[in-house]
């Protein structure tokens, strides 16, 4: 797994590439949700606020929001999820990414957890 990943308490991961932030959900989260059957993606160009719902993941009998870890503009969505939502289950950190957000200036992810911190956090869940 990519050492650069940072995690939120809502079980999203983010990967910073300059002022672009890629967002997905953690392996723990996909496992809790079960078989993902549909991903409701935002539109490219949408302006989002930190903490706002940006995508919806649906399993057979549950619905879960994905929240924006930062404010910015949606610049990419993972269109492969429209046909193959199961990618979120099969490859949560790679092929199952969800959106990319462009932030103004430098992305602030200092208050997010790194891999070890997140694992410790999961033990307390």
């Amino acid at each position: 797994m990519n050492e650069q990943l940072r995690f939120t308490k809502e079980h999203e991961w983010v990967l910073v590439k300059g002022n672009i932030i890629r967002v997905g959900i953690s392996d723990y989260a996909q496992n809790e949700l079960g078989d993902i059957v549909f991903v409701d993606l935002p539109s490219i160009g949408d302006i989002v606020e930190e903490g706002e719902g940006i995508a919806v993941l649906e399993s057979v009998k549950a619905v879960s929001d994905v929240y924006a870890p930062v404010s910015g503009e949606i610049v990419a969505i993972n269109e492969a999820l429209e046909e193959s939502p199961e990618l979120v289950n099969e490859s949560p950190f790679e092929a199952g990414w969800i959106v990319e957000i462009e932030v103004a200036g430098v992305a602030q992810t200092g208050d997010l957890m790194n891999q070890q911190e997140y694992e410790a956090f999961l033990k307390g869940v």
Binding site: V37, F38, E58, S59, V60, K61, A62, V63
Partner: peptide, 12 residues
């Protein structure tokens, strides 16, 4: 497509 329905999505 049950996630559209009230028993799962409630007020949404």
């Amino acid at each position: 497509l049950q996630t559209r329905e009230q028993h799962i999505r409630r007020e949404k």
